[in-house]
Computed example of a mutant assay.
Amino acid sequence: MKTVIEPYLFFRGRCEEAVEFYEAALEAKRVMLMRFEEAPDQPPEGMLAEGWGKKVMHASVWIGETMVMMSDGCGADEGGFDGFRLSIAPENEEQAKKIFDALSSGGSVEMPLGKTFWSPCYGMCTDKFGVGWMVNVVAEQQ
């Protein structure tokens, strides 16, 4: 059995903006984006916040070799990104700096990029949507 973990992120009404951000910052490739009003079956009465028909019910993007799924959720109170970070492993320090700078733009830096005992280039940031990231260039094995 092959098991794959695919993150599913809820953006509290900012999903389309997040998809566009990751397309620019990480060269994410959009697979699909469906709005609630486009769904073949509509959510049960009262499940969806009023005025959310144009919000994103489901989106999928490839970031490198990982499928990341996203949604606005069903209302502004749903979501939040506490207790985890997404880790991304660029091939080299130049790529790491480009990714780190793009992800941290409009967000915050918790640990600037720098050399660590396990990586020639590692840093932690949180993007403008509140998603935590670890950028980690894998050290060459001696």
Results as ranks from 00 to 15, higher is better:
residue 122 Y to K: 05
residue 126 T to E: 12
residue 137 V to A: 12
residue 139 A to M: 14
residue 120 P to A: 06
residue 132 G to K: 14
residue 123 G to M: 07
residue 139 A to H: 11
residue 128 K to D: 03
residue 112 P to N: 07
residue 118 W to P: 07
residue 132 G to N: 14
residue 105 S to H: 08
residue 116 T to Y: 12
residue 108 S to Q: 12
residue 109 V to R: 02
residue 118 W to C: 06
residue 139 A to S: 13
residue 138 V to A: 14
residue 132 G to E: 07
residue 136 N to T: 07
residue 121 C to M: 15
residue 111 M to S: 08
residue 115 K to D: 11
residue 133 W to G: 03
residue 109 V to N: 07
residue 127 D to L: 03
residue 107 G to Q: 08
residue 130 G to R: 05
residue 105 S to V: 01
residue 127 D to E: 09
residue 117 F to K: 03
residue 136 N to D: 14
residue 117 F to L: 01
residue 114 G to N: 06
residue 108 S to N: 04
residue 115 K to E: 14
residue 107 G to W: 02
residue 117 F to M: 13
residue 125 C to E: 01
residue 106 G to M: 09
residue 122 Y to Q: 04
residue 134 M to T: 12
residue 126 T to H: 00
residue 110 E to R: 13
residue 107 G to D: 05
residue 111 M to T: 08
residue 115 K to N: 04
residue 115 K to M: 09
residue 107 G to T: 02
residue 119 S to K: 11
residue 129 F to S: 04
residue 129 F to G: 04
residue 124 M to E: 13
residue 131 V to W: 10
residue 118 W to Y: 13
residue 124 M to W: 12
residue 116 T to V: 07
residue 119 S to A: 09
residue 117 F to W: 04
residue 116 T to K: 11
residue 133 W to A: 03
residue 127 D to R: 06
residue 138 V to T: 15
residue 131 V to H: 10
residue 128 K to N: 01
residue 106 G to I: 09
residue 115 K to V: 09
residue 113 L to F: 08
residue 137 V to K: 15
residue 138 V to Q: 15
residue 110 E to L: 10
residue 105 S to L: 09
residue 116 T to F: 07
residue 123 G to S: 10
residue 113 L to D: 10
residue 130 G to N: 05
residue 132 G to V: 04
residue 131 V to N: 10
residue 120 P to N: 07
residue 112 P to S: 11
residue 117 F to P: 10
residue 138 V to W: 10
residue 136 N to W: 01
residue 126 T to P: 00
residue 132 G to R: 14
residue 109 V to K: 08
residue 134 M to H: 08
residue 111 M to N: 02
residue 115 K to I: 05
residue 121 C to P: 02
residue 127 D to Y: 06
residue 108 S to I: 00
residue 128 K to G: 04
residue 135 V to S: 10
residue 109 V to I: 15
residue 108 S to L: 00
residue 122 Y to M: 11
residue 121 C to F: 02
residue 110 E to I: 04
residue 118 W to V: 10
residue 115 K to R: 15
residue 118 W to N: 09
residue 139 A to R: 14
residue 121 C to D: 01
residue 123 G to I: 06
residue 107 G to P: 02
residue 124 M to L: 09
residue 105 S to G: 05
residue 139 A to G: 14
residue 108 S to D: 11
residue 111 M to I: 08
residue 125 C to G: 00
residue 126 T to M: 08
residue 108 S to K: 12
residue 118 W to H: 12
residue 132 G to F: 02
residue 121 C to H: 12
residue 107 G to R: 03
residue 135 V to W: 12
residue 108 S to C: 03
residue 134 M to A: 14
residue 128 K to P: 01
residue 112 P to H: 06
residue 137 V to N: 15
residue 129 F to D: 02
residue 137 V to S: 13
residue 109 V to G: 04
residue 107 G to K: 01
residue 116 T to W: 03
